[in-house]
Write a protein that binds this DNA or RNA. Structure first.
Lengths: 198, 198
DNA sequence: GAATATACTTACCAAGTGGTAAGGCGTCAA
DNA sequence: TTGACGCCTTACCACTTGGTAAGTATATTC
């Protein structure tokens, strides 16, 4: 079936692009992963740029999906936002490849696709800003301030997710595990401190 | 002179590697920047991996240099650490290419140089942890907690530094400038909140 | 003046790149 | 039975990649 092969291509491409970056992966290497030739990939996606774009589209969809997931009815908006950040952290930890790939896109976007740059973060950020503005004590603050607060938390989560292999290298498996065990509760603490202020 | 050409190579390589990543830059492209051939580069550095390593070495040296710079005599250690983070932020803003390259290294390290991975972050982190432990109210806390607090702030700063071009794309030049104007004071605030707790 | 070393060049190479062209093979509809 | 279509292959293309080999021109040293 076509859609199934397509999905397999996307899975393989997602992993490889996340690990080695756009230029570090050849379409032949992706196709090899399924035991097919690169022309099979080109048949489904047309070009390397297009399969890369499809991978990013799928990932950014998953991240956007986190937002409604965190919006539990009846909860105060501040708690909803906090839960979103914690969910984001958990997702980043469970499937770090996605976060890695988005980080690469942040670094590459401008240079790789000069004309057709897509800003996958945009709808994501807009929704987050709206969520923050739903918190009573944040309604009086400027959008710029709101953005700063959100982006700093986003940075803490994303940077950590992307650092795992390096941190294991630095501290060793055990040393890292020990630090990893407390990171989430410290993050929860930081979120409280960052959000709970007028 | 040899050392001067070498430095020019390092400058060009630093900029290109930061913008396009290791695989995205050919040694010929670096040499072109100086009007030389790639064999001139190979003469000075031996291989692509080696010039890349030299670039990273130089950058990580600059970042480590920030630490003694921030250690002003007589100031309380908490203030020294805060000033370090602010200096780091300013450096990241003034020369974002360096931060971008370190971020790429975080993503690539494991996969690009399987045997000879270098952990440029290591001495940097060790010194920071020592600085935090010099703060009275942080002396009783575990190393894992100390690490988490530091790394979260590091993430806020680094992620933002790496995001500039994307944020300009999302918000436009003016929209971004407006946000950039308040980011630093919000960061200062976050540092206070993150550090000023038992 | 001869030998050496440095800083570069041109010439070349095997391997790999993304992409095109054309065709094989099975399925399904008319 | 035929034709069209979807999925995939082999064959091929021009181009780029990192790296080697060999040489040139200039300066330094003995």
């Amino acid at each position: 079936m076509a859609t199934e092969t397509r999905a397999q291509f996307l899975d393989a491409a997602e992993a490889l692009f996340a690990e080695r970056g756009f230029y570090g992966v050849s379409i032949a290497a992706i196709a090899d992963e399924l035991g097919l030739t690169k022309q099979a990939l080109l048949h489904h996606f047309g070009s390397k740029e297009k399969i890369y774009a499809a991978v990013l589209e799928r990932i950014s969809g998953r991240f956007e999906g986190l937002i409604p997931e965190a919006q539990s009815e009846g909860e105060p908006p501040a708690l909803q936002l906090k839960q979103f950040f914690l969910k984001l952290h958990q997702m980043s930890q469970n499937s770090p490849l996605q976060t890695q790939l988005l980080m690469r896109e942040l670094l590459d976007n401008k240079h790789r696709a000069p004309g057709a740059a897509r800003w996958y973060l945009k709808p994501f950020l807009e929704k987050l800003i709206a969520m923050l503005q739903a918190i009573p004590r944040w309604r009086t603050v400027t959008e710029a301030d709101a953005f700063a607060v959100l982006y700093q938390l986003l940075g803490s989560i994303t940077y950590y997710a992307v650092s795992k292999t390096t941190l294991v290298g630095i501290f060793g498996q055990d040393g890292f595990a020990e630090k990893d065990a407390v990171f989430e509760s410290r993050l929860s603490d930081l979120i409280d401190r960052a959000l709970d202020c007028p």
